[in-house]
Design a protein around this nucleic acid. Structure first.
Lengths: 308, 308
DNA sequence: TAAAAATACTCCATAGGTATTTTAT
DNA sequence: ATAAAATACCTATGGAGTATTTTTA
């Protein structure tokens, strides 16, 4: 068996036509036909049904083709690993980020990252934490920006900063005259929260449990922006991460006095990824930018090469 | 690049020696050396550090070797897929099963399955639901026996039977004289439960919430057997799945009157697995056996070929 | 009859073998 | 001095091309 044979098979599957498939592979039709037949012989199963004019994949042919695609993808990945090793700060970097962070953090860091890594093309994907973890471990993403800690041991992680939660209340709310909030202000209050799947929801619920606050029934926001509009329209109060605060949006954002409720934002990756060096450099860069912004407390856990 | 080259690389990585690696691949040392060098040329990176006597993998060499192992594994998988297609009822079948079911169900079904599928070697792995789902989707398991429903859409599933929960109480307990229990008997009682991760724990908790029963504090059993011994030693009461009941073990098992609390046991698999036919046949077989046992209510959802 | 895949035959690239050299311990 | 990898050179397998035949819609 041969990687080239798998390419031929996938090409036939894609074109449904030996001649066109051969063209796409830059070989003659008999050459491709011959190799497909050999592949069928070595596997001992018929992959393609030839009925003169039209051809179909057999059931097993579909399965084998799927596996072939998978193998070819991993071979490409191997080339990509080699290229990354030659120049890690070059090529593609696929980053995931949680939805409650993306629109507020990215405007600060992306311009600086593009400048710091000019030969790197950064692709961004907004997903919930559990999806991010899956995609990072499957190698569909190189790294992800999310709330730490991650219990799973299969990831390397570096903290970036601590982001406080502030109390978001309508302007006409009784607390809106205050300059600062206490956690105990939440006691016996009900809060508007995000829908399931968002880590921010769990973090807010944890705060609620500490002070005996409850979740508003019959409402689950699908995004932080929805939540913001609900508060602005006086439908209730909620906890907002600091970076998501705006000014003049009809909401009063009250900081808590110490101990402030916070979430820790960090960057995670597969310990074995060849992009480790890039990601570690990115951590330094993001910390630098966010330190200047003074919106969050930047963390300075040393960046070192860990092995697993 | 070539699958053979990847084998050579992995062999060198395993033996740390070109000569021995070549022997293991049944080729001469120069042949193998040549191909390794070619692989390094095509990837454009040095994979192996040759310092005369001793050789080492470079950092990037380790990454590429890992990727090569992965690719070779998938190529083997492809052969396995082909072999399975030639005779699905032959070869290996890797089945997962939840720990609260395995020791009680397997004695009933394994003898019958071995008889029904004599050319099939069945490997069993006991794991919690979330681990089973991961391993099935990764292809490390062909299928899994667990409690339905599974919310994830990426699996095909067939229900096998409904297993009732019965009330397990010490023989001297006030309820032990009764022949039958009501759910309301649990009101304001505390129950011993399993530790986190077992789906049985969640199912029992769901029953608790319905009747306002609580979980015993400061105790979480690691297995159903521990739980049984705790009840037998009069430490508390619990819910037991019917199949886990024994006789003469110092425990009174009280069935509930309708509507009985139950869990649905089913078999799941990847929709694309080539072992689908085997698994569907296995469902029929298990239903047949369990129907004879009369311990559970066998379900008869039709077995059909679904496509995704 | 026309389009598409299979077959026949030739050629050459390259993997692999043997013999030998180089290199580092 | 010796073990181990690299180099040199030859052989042969098999992949690819062109020309042609077969098949069926």
């Amino acid at each position: 068996m041969n990687i080239r044979d798998l390419k031929y098979l996938v090409s036939v599957a894609d074109y449904g036509h030996f001649g066109k498939a051969a063209d796409a592979c830059f070989v003659s039709q008999p050459a491709l036909s011959m190799q497909i037949k050999k592949l069928e012989d070595t596997l001992g199963v018929q992959l393609i049904e030839r009925t003169g004019k039209k051809i179909f994949l057999t059931e097993i042919g579909k399965l084998i083709t799927q596996q072939a695609r998978d193998i070819l993808f991993r071979v490409e990945e191997m080339r990509e690993i080699a290229n990354t090793a030659k120049d890690p700060f070059c090529g593609e970097l696929h980053l995931g980020i949680i939805p409650t962070l993306a629109p507020y953090l990215l405007p600060y860091i992306i311009p600086s990252l593009s400048k710091a890594f000019p030969k790197l093309t950064i692709y961004l994907a907004e997903e919930t934490t559990s999806n991010l973890l899956t995609k990072v471990s499957q190698g569909k993403l190189d790294g992800a920006l999310l709330a730490l800690p991650i219990v799973n041991e299969d990831f390397a992680a570096l903290p970036l900063f601590e982001e406080e939660f502030v109390l978001a209340i309508p302007l006409n709310h009784s607390l809106a005259k205050r300059k600062i909030a206490k956690l105990s202000d939440l006691e016996n209050k009900t809060l508007l929260l995000l829908e399931d799947g968002h880590c921010l929801r769990d973090q807010a619920l944890a705060v609620c449990h500490r002070v005996n606050a409850a979740e508003a029934q019959n409402f689950r926001a699908t995004s932080l922006e929805t939540l913001r509009h609900m508060v602005a329209s006086k439908a209730g109060i909620t906890l907002m991460p600091k970076l998501a605060c705006k000014s003049n949006d009809g909401i009063c954002y009250l900081p808590f006095n110490a101990p402030k409720p916070v979430r820790t934002i960090g960057l995670i990756w597969r310990p074995s990824t060849p992009k480790k060096i890039v990601l570690e450099n990115m951590v330094s860069q993001i910390r630098k930018v966010m330190f200047k912004q003074k919106m969050v407390r930047v963390l300075n856990t040393p960046i070192m090469c860990r092995n697993k």
